[in-house]
Design a protein around this nucleic acid. Structure first.
Length: 537
RNA sequence: GCCCCUGUAGCUCAGUGGAUAGAGCGGCUGCCUUCUAAGCAGCGGGUCGCAGGUUCGAGUCCUGCCGGGGGCGCCA
């Protein structure tokens, strides 16, 4: 399909040159028409180049159409001019039939696989919630977004490494250990401690001679891993913050920072002169007493990631960490790295509602809904698509009642049902001994119904959708596309029988292949979202 | 005060600077004697927050204002 665009672009360029337009615009817009009655593709170049050509847009469009019409480019059946000066191209259906062939030839593995990354090694860090308790529902957004983005990056030629940063050190860890220990001993929760039910559950679980400081974080990590596993989200590395104290990585980072000349002592603490790096104020890296701050640990961690050979780091954070972005980037620069190699994606927060009321989330107060509970109730597919259908840039309201009680209406079933129907067609074809001939023996020009052509149009867009979703870090674009393809399939399924009375053998063959190409498209799209593609429902 | 995200149908949300702004849910109405009705089709529903600006052309880009969310810790 990009081929079509290239053909039309270069034809238009040639025609503009021949007409003496000077200068010819660098970019010649050729887009899919959203007005099917006017054509399949269209170009607005006559509007943009009118001035340079010394003609009215409409006149330039007419001349372009006449010139191109004299010797039409490949696939082009008709060229017309409409509106203020759009040049519209109607193509032979063959261009869509060629899409089908391409999908089948490249298959589930090969179709829509753009090499944008050229094997670049990317480290994607996501979730990284503190191991101070179970994950709450909102964390599911980062888990699912991050995982889907990784799948898309992989399909686009990046070498992806999924990583979870475990903040198993610092003030919050002390509070967690103290909270569990207090519960164990039957004492009241310490000030600012964690009060959730899970604290007493864990206290009961913990052996009497265990060290709460070591045991509790491990228990939390196990819990988090379980919840993420249920969502089909796994990581290559669980990176412990505490391990960097023992390994000397924190000291190494500190040494590098000192070498930058931006470190000084004041008020008993050690500071990084981030005002020299464009920030409004300096940052503490060693607290009074010598304890590393979160920033220093995070800097050591990012230094370590670069050291491991990644040339691009992507961090996915909730918008509540916005204040940390400039600090971390400044610190990365102080360590001698290009801050542009660190890409931070900020996702807007999730509001959880139940019974029309906002459920306030707080691990310390203990009032939160666990991700694991929700996933157990609705399953990973519903949970994943619910998160993935919406852009990460908008605040999401996760309505528990709607997601749970109306999970049957969840769009995921609409999409999966399309896949199941396709599988069913295959089963019935088997039962009825309907063979499927090799593609090269099948006459695809049988595919002329608007429903059939719409399916192929969607399939033809998939490579661009995937590439766009990759570039803009926007998995929801794949989710939107998958829903559209499913919708078009259901329409086809309703209007166009594949087998049976009134369907010619030739039509059956062409439609069997159309259905197979649709299955491939659904499987690719769902695979990128990490949603299963069932054969029956 | 400054910084980031956001405002599109009753609700939840899509919408690469292009022509007549879409989908799902909800409401009403049709469609199961051929492959799964978890489906299809139709009807109704909009000053794209407001005001300027850039452009041949703005829901989309810029500025300002208004509303919502988040941030500006020796918490993480």
């Amino acid at each position: 399909m990009p081929m079509i665009q290239d053909i039309l672009t270069s034809s238009l360029r040639g025609a503009l040159v021949a007409l003496g337009v000077d200068p010819v615009p660098d970019r010649i817009p050729v887009e899919r028409s959203n007005r099917p009655e006017l054509g399949d593709w269209s170009s607005s170049v006559a509007l943009a180049a009118a001035k340079a050509s010394g003609r009215k847009p409409r006149d330039l469009a007419d001349e372009l159409a006449a010139r191109l019409g004299a010797d039409p480019p490949a696939y082009v059946a008709e060229i017309t001019v409409a509106g203020p000066g759009f040049v519209n191209f109607r193509l032979h259906d063959r261009w869509l039939h060629d899409v089908l062939t391409e999908v089948i030839e490249q298959g589930e593995e090969g179709y829509a696989r753009y090499d944008l990354g050229h094997g670049e090694r990317v480290n994607v860090e996501f979730v990284s919630a503190n191991p101070t308790g179970p994950l709450h529902v909102g964390a599911g957004r980062w888990a699912v977004y991050g995982d889907a983005l990784c799948r898309i990056l992989e399909r686009c030629g990046y070498g992806v490494h999924r990583e979870y940063y475990v903040n198993d050190r610092g003030v919050q860890m002390g509070l967690l250990a103290a909270s569990v220990a207090a519960a164990k001993a039957g004492r009241p929760t310490p000030e600012d401690g964690y009060k959730g039910q899970y604290i007493s559950d864990w206290a009961a679980e913990m052996a009497d001679d265990a060290d709460p400081g070591a045991w509790a974080p491990q228990r939390a990590v196990a819990d988090i891993q379980g919840a993420l596993g249920a969502l089909n989200v796994t990581f290559d590395t669980w990176f412990s913050e505490k391990s960097m104290v023992e390994s000397g990585a924190i000291d190494a980072a500190l040494t590098d920072l000192r070498a930058s000349g931006l470190v000084y002592e004041s008020d008993g603490a050690t500071w990084l002169r981030t005002t020299d790096l464009g920030l409004a104020k300096d940052e503490v890296i060693l607290k009074t007493g010598g304890e590393p701050t979160y920033l220093l640990g995070d800097l050591a961690y990012h230094r370590d990631k670069f050291t491991r050979g990644f040339t691009r780091l992507i961090d996915i954070w909730g918008a509540d960490h916005h204040g940390h972005v400039a600090r971390l980037k400044a610190g990365v620069r102080a360590l001698g790295h290009d801050p542009d190699e660190l890409e931070i994606v900020l996702g807007q927060l999730v509001t959880v509602e139940r019974g029309g009321e906002v459920v306030r989330m707080g691990k310390r107060s203990g009032t939160f809904v666990e991700l694991a509970e929700v996933v157990e109730e609705v399953g990973p597919d519903v949970a994943r698509l619910t998160f993935l259908l919406q852009s990460i840039d908008t605040r999401q309201t996760f309505d528990l009642d709607a997601v749970v009680s109306k999970s049957m209406d969840n769009p995921v079933f609409y999409v999966q049902y399309a896949h199941a129907r396709i599988a069913s067609i295959g089963r019935v074809a088997g039962e009825r001994n309907v063979p499927r001939y090799p593609l090269e023996m099948v006459d695809l020009s049988e595919l002329t119904h608007p429903r059939e052509l719409d399916l192929l149009r969607s399939l033809g867009e998939l490579p661009e959708v995937v590439a766009d979703a990759c570039r803009t870090r926007a998995p929801h674009k794949v989710a939107t596309w998958v829903r559209e393809l499913a919708g078009r399939f259901h329409g086809f399924y309703h209007d166009c029988y594949v087998m049976g009375e009134g369907v010619s053998h030739e039509q059956t063959q062409a439609r069997l292949w159309l259905v197979e190409s649709t299955r491939i498209g659904l499987a690719i799209g769902l695979g990128l979202l990490g949603v299963s593609a069932p054969d029956s429902m």
